Amino acid sequence: MSDLIKSMSVAASGMQAQSQRLRHVSENIANADTPGYHRKTISFRDAVDGEGVRPGPVRLDRSDLVKIFDPGHPLADDSGHYDGSNVDLVIEIADAREAQRSYEANLKLFDQARQMTQSLFEILRG
Rank of each mutant, 00 (worst) to 15 (best):
D83A: 14
V53N: 02
S26I: 03
H73I: 13
D111V: 15
Q115M: 11
Q20M: 15
D78T: 14
D83E: 13
A94F: 06
G80A: 10
A96H: 05
A105G: 09
Q118F: 04
R114E: 11
S19E: 11
E27W: 05
G36F: 02
R54A: 10
K108V: 15
N106I: 01
G72E: 13
R114V: 08
D70N: 12
Y37E: 08
P57Y: 07
L65M: 08
A99C: 04
M116G: 00
D111Q: 15
A47P: 01
K108D: 02
R114M: 14
G80W: 02
N106Y: 02
F110E: 00
F110C: 06
H38A: 10
D64Y: 03
S63F: 00
A32I: 11
F69Y: 15
N31A: 00
D77Q: 06
F69K: 05
D64E: 13
P74N: 02
D95K: 12
D33L: 08
R45I: 06
A32T: 08
D70W: 08
S19I: 14
M116F: 09
T41D: 09
V90P: 04
L109K: 07
H24I: 12
H38M: 10
Y37D: 10
V90R: 12
K67F: 05
H38W: 02
R21Y: 01
S85E: 05
V90I: 11
T41R: 12
D78Y: 10
V66S: 02
N28G: 04
K67A: 13
R59W: 04
R45A: 12
L107R: 07
T34Q: 09
V90C: 04
A99N: 03
N28Q: 07
L107S: 10
T117I: 14
A99K: 03
L22T: 08
G52N: 03
F69V: 05
D70H: 07
A94P: 03
L89M: 14
R23W: 10
L22C: 01
Q20C: 09
Q112V: 15
H73A: 06
R114P: 00
I42P: 00
D77N: 14
G56S: 09
K108P: 00
R97C: 03
G50M: 04
H81F: 15
N31E: 03
D88Y: 05
P35Y: 06
G52R: 03
D46S: 15
K40G: 01
F69N: 03
D49F: 03
N86P: 00
Y37K: 08
S102A: 14
K67G: 03
D49T: 05
A94M: 14
V66P: 00
V66G: 00
D64L: 14
D111Y: 08
A113G: 02
R59D: 07
V90N: 12
A105S: 13
H24A: 11
K40T: 04
F44R: 08
A32E: 09
V25F: 01
Q100V: 10
N86Y: 01
G50F: 01
S19Q: 13
Q100W: 07
D46Q: 14
V58N: 07
R21E: 00
E51I: 15
P57N: 11
F69P: 01
N86R: 06
